[in-house]
């Protein structure tokens, strides 16, 4: 998949209005050579799935800061599967350690905390995509 240009959707689900972190992640991924399709705030699972289909995205990144991750994360994963999309969902933001396993069980490919370095962000997204490509 060497010459394939990776495309990643970044969005915020629901009413959470913090977009500082997700904008930083957008720049990190762009600087790593990826194309970031930035959807911004107040998205729904349906609008994110539609964008992923139209943009032929390789991954979806959701940023969460309002403690809704345990409901919204699995909901998003479900919507992706229900649409027949086989792409990883990565959640970034404030997620307590004890919730990570539950999210992974619900089909989320990776969780990135607020302390993640640029290298970690890039590696996590790339690994999630290549794990899916091989599967």
């Amino acid at each position: 998949m060497g010459d394939h240009q990776q495309r990643v959707i970044l969005a915020k689900l629901g009413l959470d209005g913090h977009d500082r972190g997700i904008k930083v992640v957008a720049r990190i991924l762009r600087d790593a050579g990826m194309e970031v399709i930035y959807l911004g705030l107040r998205q729904t699972t349906a609008s994110i799935v539609a964008a992923a289909e139209e943009e032929d995205a390789d991954a979806i990144g959701l940023s969460m800061h309002n403690a809704g991750h345990l409901t919204l994360g699995p909901k998003m994963a479900e919507a992706i599967t229900a649409a027949g999309l086989d792409i990883p969902l990565i959640i970034g933001g404030i997620v307590p350690d004890e919730d990570v396993e539950e999210l992974m069980d619900a089909g989320i490919a990776a969780v990135l905390g607020p302390g993640a370095s640029a290298e970690e962000v890039v590696a996590t997204v790339q690994n999630a995509i290549s794990a899916r490509d091989k599967a």
Binding site: R30, Y38, G40
Partner: peptide
């Protein structure tokens, strides 16, 4: 790389 933000 690119940030494509028109959809917003």
């Amino acid at each position: 790389g690119a940030i494509l933000g028109d959809r917003i």
